[in-house]
Amino acid sequence: MEADKDNVNPTIINPSDLPSRRRSAPTAKRAGLFDALAPAYPSLADGLSSPEASSSEPSSDEEPEEIDEQEVYDLISTISDPEHPLSLGSLGVVKLEDIAILPPTSARSRISTVTVLVTPTTSACSLTTVIGLGVKVRLVNALPPRFRVDVRIKPGTSSTAGEVNKQLGDKERVAAAMENKSLVNVVNNMLATCE
């Protein structure tokens, strides 16, 4: 089995060196980013959106939650690597500095974008797509639906980045993948270590 792995000896980050809320004061201040997003629901005020549209959503979605990069990191850093019994955080596959949250592009839009750049453990990692899929599925399931999740390969880290990026950005392919039992099992195993 060992010989089949793309990267037999990955670099492992010491858990105490991983970013966390307690030690990363700068990220706490990022909440201010969302303070600037008021008014949160202008479309309801001017009647552009039907009342039943929002009432069909869980009430937790009625008020925008303040979500910052650290929280996104916490959601995905505990995902298990598909070939090592290690987390994506400890392998450096996901890094806090490679997560960006972009606010709505206009006052009327309510859609924010989360961009995650994934660093494969080796440039030839054939499991890059699966890792990216795990990250995408985790975030789509865990974040409120107002977030668009863009998962990409960090530029310069993979020879197949373009191909993988296109697959991960294709909602139809991702949807179909999530109806493929063997792929779902792989992803579920990766996500089993998440809280």
Partner: peptide, 9 residues
């Protein structure tokens, strides 16, 4: 028109 299906695609 924006947000035609709430926040969904």
């Amino acid at each position: 028109l924006e947000n035609t299906h709430d926040v969904f695609e």
